[in-house]
Amino acid sequence: MSSFRKVNYSLRPAKHAQRRMVSELLGCLYPFKAVRDYQYIGFGSLWFEDFRLFHKLLGFKKMVSIERSEAKDRFLHNKPFKAIDLLFGDSGAKLPEIDWTKESIVWLDFDSPLSLETVRDIQLVSASCKSGSCLAITLKVDEAAEILEATKAQEEISHAVAQFTSRFKDYYGGKVFSDDLRGNPFRQVCEAIVDAAVEQKIALRNTEKEGGDVFEFRRVCRFSYSDATPMLTLLYVFYIRSDQSKFDECSFETVDFLPNMDHEVKIQMPVMTLKEIREIEEQLPTDDIDTLDAGYVPPSDVKKFISIYRYLPNFSVLET
């Protein structure tokens, strides 16, 4: 089933905040090329949330949404801007059709756990994109797909471990235990696998390259958030060595939420009422959380709120 049937993306506040944070990072790419002239490739689903936001904030004129659903007319009907082209089919089949001679921003926004197909897509982009391009990958990281498969088949958990190991052993060298396939340890395993997959393709691209033409890749940021299910987003930038100064000029780490490269940004939603939100927002920004009058909101929620308030949607109450 296509993911759009499961959940309406627009109701996910953490996801929304992440999208806005990503857009702030993408805005840093200007030393490579005017950001509006990048092409954007994503999985827009029925809502095209990322497409709407990025078109309005960053001005992309060339955008491609890959959609594997058969309900073509419905997707075409919901397409919000003329700037968006729709490609219908599996991402593995459609990604090779993209014009990779252009600087690209690609968001492989999966709502499923890591699979060999997701690794294939990540490698397709890593093998094709131009210097200055950016790749974001989002994965569901609550538990490995192999656990679900084993549970459904009424198999023991050792089956899941063996299956996972046999699928990903090239990308993950460590011994996998059953608790590595769930929760926080699973997220770390996924990060290592994606890294190894990207690195392998870049190394292959570099076989015949020398000097300034050699490709580099940097993981700029890791997001972890959870609206209902824990998700992970990794953001990479690719560039050739002769573009190193352009990459440095991007200065990603000057963005508020990114103290250093490859920082893990945890987006945690505070539990607060609209009244509390308004009262605290009036006192922001501040360098001194301690002097802030937070009313009855626990300090841990205040901290969470301050770290992401700029990226949260504007809440309002419609019912009476």
Partner: peptide, 14 residues
């Protein structure tokens, strides 16, 4: 090319 990657290292270890 191969020696520079984690994937090759993993294969050798395995």
């Amino acid at each position: 090319t191969s020696f520079g990657t984690k994937v090759f290292e993993n294969k050798i270890i395995a």
